[in-house]
């Protein structure tokens, strides 16, 4: 009988790692890992051809649990290592797992340049609006007015719109999903993995421990209810009058282009020289 659901996931987890994983009860990151595994399984990619490159933070801790080639790098730099891996061996499917602080603050420069050079990497940005692992300090994705350990009187700065940033920087594919809408997330993730060029998928994944408790969400379940109520399909969100948008945010695909990735353009350059050598 064909196996389904979590039985698939169990086959991809490292059997010599201790479970459950280190993340807090109700943390959406586990759901992201599950969705990632199902997406890879759906695409039929061999484990040997998948490289997970993770940054530092709660999201970075996911890599160790899954039986792919996994590289847990330095804070904010996952995309730089991934760039080297992809250029060195373009056959590999390189997937970056980064947090919002990781990808947008300390790694912001790498993020915009990876998008600009459109290198064939899947960038999954797990946005929980906070620095979780270090104890709940503000990140560039902490909403204006929200309370954090470093913004005890409310965040004064505006937050990044990750999607707009990636669109502006030139990514091939830009999308947003949530860990509540898992089926939709899986569809987006499959696209983000199989498409050429730089594909950015922002995943809204709640942190109840560090963000929710300081911002009126007593349990992780409340945060999932919030996701359920506020994530709107992009088209529906755009139809909504601005005054009625409130906390609502758009999910879905924002950009879908078919520009060749940097590694493909480099291969073309090399082909020109080898044709010259052989001819």
């Amino acid at each position: 009988m064909e196996i389904t659901g979590n039985e698939i996931i169990h086959q991809y987890l490292r059997h010599n790692k201790k479970f459950p994983h280190v993340l807090c009860p109700g943390c959406g990151h586990g759901i992201v890992l599950g969705t990632l595994i199902r997406s890879v399984h759906h695409l039929g990619l061999p484990k040997d051809d998948v490289v997970i490159v993770a940054g530092i933070g709660c999201s970075g801790r996911l890599a160790v649990y899954v039986d792919f080639n996994t590289v847990h790098t330095t804070h904010g730099r996952a995309l730089t290592f991934a760039t080297g891996i992809k250029m060195a061996n373009p056959k590999l499917n390189v997937i970056c797992l980064m947090g919002d602080g990781d990808a947008l603050s300390i790694g912001g420069n790498h993020m915009i340049h990876a998008a600009r050079r459109n290198i064939g990497i899947t960038a999954l940005i797990l946005n929980n609006n906070i620095y979780g692992m270090t104890g709940g300090q503000s990140s560039p994705a902490t909403p204006e007015g929200a309370v954090s350990m470093t913004a005890p009187f409310g965040q004064l700065e505006k937050s990044f719109d990750t999607v707009q940033l990636a669109c502006g920087a030139g990514a091939n594919f830009v999308a947003r999903g949530t860990v509540f809408h898992v089926n939709n997330l899986e569809k987006l993730m499959i696209k983000a993995i199989e498409r050429p060029g730089f594909n950015m998928l922002e995943i809204i994944t709640p942190c109840h421990t560090q963000f929710g408790r300081k911002n009126k969400y007593k349990t992780s379940v409340e945060m999932y209810r919030w996701l359920k109520a506020n994530a709107l399909d992009r088209e529906r969100y755009e139809e909504l009058e601005e005054s009625k948008r409130g906390d609502k945010f758009p999910v879905g695909v924002f950009v879908e282009r078919d520009e060749p990735g940097l590694e493909e353009r480099y291969a073309e350059l090399k082909a020109r020289f080898s044709a010259g050598r052989n001819g």
């Binding site: 790098t73 080297g84 250029m87």
Partner: peptide, 8 residues
């Protein structure tokens, strides 16, 4: 970062 990745 890139050369470490490529070395790996």
């Amino acid at each position: 970062g890139a050369i470490v990745g490529a070395s790996m």
